[in-house]
Design a protein around this nucleic acid. Structure first.
Lengths: 106, 106
DNA sequence: GTTTTTGGCAACCGTTCGGTTGCAAATATA
DNA sequence: TATATTTGCAACCGAACGGTTGCCAAAAAC
């Protein structure tokens, strides 16, 4: 079972969940109310997000509030970095991009 | 068949392929030589990358050179933007992030 | 104490995924 | 022309994915 951030954000529903949790911590039921699926389906998504630490939890009686953890998204940002330079700056080809990738591998 | 950039980069082999193509255009055989799988497996990955326009192709006789298209990765970058502000700047919580997400939805 | 609400867990189902093998088409080489 | 190389396509396989239903435990409400 591969479980990394890239795979976690591959699903559009999970991306929506992350966006909602970024605004405010929510319970599984609270989240599920915003989707056209069952609570269990959402719970499965939450479990995946938890496993790669994109969300954390906090118990409050019988309710569980899930919190978004932005730090883990850094991994994606980091991977994106060398490519970003390809469209960001004046050079729209290799050059420093190439160097960065080579350093990365060494 | 859902075929978007997020799903395309979910697979580690495909991310490796993109990094290689960012350095230089390559043929399926050339790419496959760098992996411990069959050429056909790599071809399948290339097909997926092609379908969401992360790579383009150019024929040269019987060979096909695949090129990396960085522009499509902007979609990921764009989605990441509001979250990036959560770890980049002084505020490590909502605020402008919240605003950005709300504008995005409207 | 009974009932309702919240939420996890397990089993199941159809589909997709990543991979392999086999084959055919097209180009290059002998 | 015969042969070898490059590549895509189709069929198949086991595993994972996304979803559902059913059930049970714990906390809250009555």
């Amino acid at each position: 079972m591969r479980r990394d951030v890239f795979q976690a954000i591959a699903d559009p529903t999970r991306r929506d969940i992350l966006e909602m949790l970024a605004k405010e911590a929510m319970t599984p039921n609270g989240l599920a109310a915003n989707f056209h699926t069952t609570r269990q389906a959402i719970s499965k998504h939450i479990k995946i997000l938890s496993e790669c630490q994109l969300v954390t939890q906090e118990y409050s009686g019988r309710e569980i509030y899930y919190y978004f953890n932005s730090k883990k998204l850094k991994e994606v940002d980091k991977w994106l970095q060398p490519f970003r330079e390809m469209w960001d700056k004046r050079f729209d080809q290799l050059d420093t991009v190439l160097k960065n990738l080579k350093n990365k591998r060494s």
